[in-house]
Write a protein that binds this DNA or RNA. Structure first.
Length: 290
DNA sequence: CACTTGACCTGTCCGC
DNA sequence: TGCGGACAGGTCAAGT
């Protein structure tokens, strides 16, 4: 899933839905998805309550009253879906109504129950994702957190910052650099292709060959595309759903991603697909030249 | 050192 | 309908 806009959408949903709730039970089916000792779970997760939900890059952080946090990476197919059975019984009409009776399913890796009987399901078809319990103040020491680049949507993150970060990777392709989380945080395959199309830059161009002005346009595109996607609730390419099980609609607005064979919305040429930086890559061959 | 490729898993889709 | 292979939103380890 889950690039920055999708994780941000889940974060906003969970902030609204689970802050203040107390955890009373946890079931997990897979040690890779939930690599926590029974002792830690009993001491720091059960009977704790949720203080806040945060996001850094594509990582979600649920802070608990025990000064521990659940650190969660959804990787490709992870979902976090909350269901409040009382809301449904009383006819509050939440989107998650349609999921009642469907979860847990065979992709459910962790099921967290709150004191009001509502539940949070961590589903992950491919089992790449994980949900790790750790002391809140140790999160910054995780290797990923130490190396991850700045948040591109932060107010304080300027085009000057963007350009100087990319200048540190002069020899690589612009698509590989965009996907590299240590350059800037949160861009994945969808938004890399979408923003490169917006900036009229071919994904295989080498960073050193790009002008400051081109990088500055790319900076704006990255931010515009991800802000638009957050507004649309993210992209549901395959598995992604938000905290209430709803799909995101950014794919309806995508200009190149998964649109191979269709017309470029700018010039009408057919979109093509090939492999770049090891990933399926979508390009308008007229707007984006090597 | 900088950069690229393979592995981690399961499910789906496409061609034979 | 069945089967093999390619491919899928991310990140790390191992390779060049």
């Amino acid at each position: 899933m889950p690039e920055l806009p999708e994780v941000e959408t889940v974060k906003r949903g969970l902030s609204r839905l689970i802050v203040g709730k107390s955890i009373v039970d946890v079931i997990s089916d897979n040690p890779k998805s939930f690599p926590n000792s029974k002792q830690d779970v009993e001491s720091f997760l059960l009977e704790s309550s949720v203080l806040s939900v945060r996001r850094r890059a594509k990582v979600l952080i649920i802070d608990l009253s025990t000064k521990y946090s659940l650190v969660i990476h959804l990787k490709m197919t992870g979902q976090l879906v909350y269901i409040n059975y009382d809301d449904i019984r009383f006819g509050a009409g939440h989107p998650s109504d349609s999921l009642v009776g469907k979860l847990p399913d065979k992709s459910t890796r962790v099921e967290i129950t709150f004191s009001d009987k509502s539940k949070l399901f961590f589903n992950d078809q491919r089992k790449f994702g994980w949900m790790k319990l750790m002391p809140s103040d140790e999160i910054v020491n995780l290797p990923f957190m130490k190396k991850v680049g700045p948040e591109p949507l932060d107010q304080s993150f300027t085009s000057i910052d963007f350009i100087s970060r990319f200048r540190r990777r002069p020899g690589t392709s612009i698509k590989a650099a965009l996907l590299d989380q240590s350059v800037i945080a949160g861009v994945g395959n969808i938004y890399a292709d979408e923003s490169l199309w917006g900036a009229k830059i071919h994904p295989k161009r080498i960073v050193s060959g790009l002008s400051d002005s081109e990088l500055s346009i790319l900076y704006r595109e990255v931010r515009d595309v991800m802000n638009l996607s957050i507004e649309k609730g993210g992209s549901t390419n395959r598995n992604y759903v938000d905290a209430e099980g709803k799909k995101g609609s950014y794919m309806d607005f995508a200009r190149v991603f998964r649109r191979e064979g269709l017309d470029c919305p700018r010039c009408g040429e057919q979109i093509i697909k090939f492999k770049a930086a090891g990933r399926g890559t979508h390009v308008c061959p007229v707007c984006q030249v090597l």
